[in-house]
Amino acid sequence: MDKAQIKAVIAARAAKELKDGDIVNLGIGIPTLIPTYLPEGVNIQLQAECGMINAGGAPAPEDAEPAHICDAGGSPASILTGGAFIDSSMSFTMIRGGHVNGTFLGALQVDEKGNLANWIIPGKTVPGMGGAMDLVVGANKVIVTMEHTAKGNHKILKDCTLPLTAVKCVDMIITEMGVMNVTDKGIELVEIHPEFTVEDVQAATGATLIISPDLKPMDL
């Protein structure tokens, strides 16, 4: 798979996790592709932490109002009919208060306890946590969508080595190789992409996987 195919596989599988009516916050990168793959009849409400619920996509250039309506990356955005603009306190009342059904976001590292690291590489890159620390603590379900490894290096580990975003917060990991649930006993592989074997996935993972007795091909 090339990079574009990897992203498409992850986003398409992630979209299957959504139910009609879900209120969802999407992180930057792969998560922003998820709405493209929503199954027929599944409509979701996107919460954008910069201050809107029922966020729409990028507007036509002539409709853009960059001084007034932006997405969480600062790019011109739009709002759907029935949406609402909110201040930052209300935005995080939705997020931290458990009113958002799910958040999908990328990670630098995830470990078998569900710890997540995605905001700082000390001495190198310090983008800041933005809304991520609140999102992973407050959203009902936290799903990490990411490439399984970074240039061959493990990202799914026994213990995160980078500073954490939050402890024990990740529920599910979706990569191009498969779908994994974070359980009390460790990371359970529940779906596998047909291009890979269980041995391939284990070799690309820095924690010992629990292989589900019910292991299925990835639902794409």
């Binding site: 932490e49 620390m133 603590v137 500073p163 975003t165």
Partner: peptide
């Protein structure tokens, strides 16, 4: 954290002594 920032500002303006939040615990 962004949600903490919003509430720390709100607390500053609302005469509250602080914010108590689960965000950031263990980090």
């Amino acid at each position: 954290p962004q949600g903490s920032f919003a509430e720390m500002l709100r607390a500053g303006g609302a005469g509250l002594g602080g914010v108590i939040t689960p965000t950031g615990v263990g980090t």
